[in-house]
Design a protein around this nucleic acid. Structure first.
Length: 273
DNA sequence: ACTATTTCCTGGATGC
DNA sequence: TGCATCCAGGAAATAG
C-alpha cells in the first residue's frame, strides 16, 4: 500500500519522465468510483494542460498544470491518491492495457500516463491551481514541538493517531508499525500517555524509517510498483510489519499481531512498552 | 471536538 | 478442481 515513501518514489519518477510534457487527450473508463471530480470536468481540465511539475504532498501525488498554449499560466492541480492498490504508470501506446485501467492520458511525447486500480480506493481529482493542501502536517522534518502537540490530550491509541492523516499526512500502516517498534512504544498506548522522551524517540524513529524507506524506493507489499513498474525493496528491512510469529530481530521474542480500529498492528511484546 | 465503527472494492488465500 | 468465504486496508461517512 503506497504510503509516504512509495508516493515520494512514484512522484519523483513521474516528474523525471513527464514534467514539461503536454496532455493531448484523455480517456476515462466507465467506473466512476475513483473519480472525485466529474469525468467530463477532469478530461476537460487535463486536455491541453502542460505538466509543470509532479511532487508528493502527504500521500497525494500533485501535478501542477499550466495552459499549454498560453505560456505557463497556472491552470489547475491534478491530485492523485493511490489508495491501496492504485498505480500511475508511464506506458507506451502499444503496451497492453491492464485490467482495471480507469484513465489514460495521452501525452505530446507519445507516452501515456495510465491510472490502474483494481480495488478502486484510489482517487483522482482536479482542483484550482495552487489550492491543494494536505489535511495534516508533513512528517519529514516536522517541528518537534508541533509534533508533540499533535498527540496532546488524545485518548486514542498512538497507532491510530499516527494513521490519522489530519494530524500527520503520509504515515500508513507499515511505517506506523515500524516507527513504533524503533521507538520502543506499544501501538495500543494512549497517545496522550507518551512522555516527552517517548515523543522524542518516536519523532526520531519516524525520520529514520521514512528516510531509509525512501532510499530503498519504498516497500513492495501488495502490488506496489513505481512509475516505471519497478518494485521497491524496503519490505526486506521491515522489522515487525507482517512478521507475526517470527522472532524479534533484537530479542528473538515472537512478534505479535493485534487489531487496532480494524487495522493489523505488529509489535514486539518485549521491546515495546 | 473527538473517537469508534462501517463502508467502499477486488484478488489472493483458505477451507470444505 | 471448484466454489464459497474471509481478509487486507486508506479515508470518507456515519454513529455515538
Amino acid at each position: 500500500m503506497p504510503e509516504l515513501p512509495e508516493v515520494e518514489t512514484i512522484a519523483n519518477g513521474l516528474n523525471k519522465r513527464v514534467a514539461g510534457d503536454v496532455i493531448e487527450s484523455v480517456w476515462i473508463g466507465s467506473r466512476t468510483q475513483p473519480l472525485k471530480s466529474p469525468a467530463q470536468e477532469m478530461a476537460q481540465v487535463l486536455e491541453g494542460s502542460r505538466i509543470e511539475r509532479i511532487r508528493r504532498v502527504g500521500k497525494h501525488i500533485v501535478a501542477d498544470l499550466t495552459e499549454a498554449k498560453r505560456g505557463h499560466k497556472p491552470k489547475a492541480q491534478w491530485i492523485i491518491h493511490l489508495g491501496m492498490t492504485g498505480q500511475m504508470l508511464i506506458a507506451q501506446p502499444e503496451n497492453e492495457i491492464k485490467k482495471h485501467t480507469h484513465l489514460i492520458a495521452k501525452l505530446a511525447s507519445n507516452k501515456e500516463l495510465r491510472f490502474v486500480d483494481p480495488r478502486m480506493f484510489g482517487k483522482l481529482q482536479v482542483v484550482a491551481a495552487e489550492s491543494f493542501k494536505a489535511p495534516g502536517s508533513e512528517p519529514i522534518n516536522a517541528d518537534r514541538d508541533h509534533f508533540a502537540k499533535l498527540f496532546k490530550g488524545r485518548k486514542t491509541p498512538i497507532k491510530s493517531a499516527l494513521l490519522n492523516q489530519a494530524l500527520l499526512s503520509g504515515i500508513g500502516n507499515i511505517y506506523a508499525d515500524e516507527s513504533l517498534f524503533r521507538a520502543g512504544i506499544r501501538p495500543r498506548r494512549r497517545a496522550a500517555s507518551l512522555s516527552k522522551n517517548d515523543l522524542t524517540r518516536l519523532y526520531d524513529a519516524i525520520q529514520e524509517v521514512l528516510a531509509e524507506a525512501i532510499a530503498a524506493g519504498g516497500s513492495s507489499v501488495s502490488d506496489y510498483v513505481d512509475a516505471e513498474g519497478e518494485e521497491g525493496f524496503f519490505q526486506l528491512q521491515h522489522r515487525v510489519y507482517q512478521r507475526e510469529g517470527e522472532p524479534c530481530l533484537v530479542c528473538r521474542t515472537p512478534i505479535k499481531r493485534i487489531v487496532i480500529s480494524g487495522r493489523s498492528s505488529h509489535y514486539c511484546p518485549k521491546c515495546q512498552k
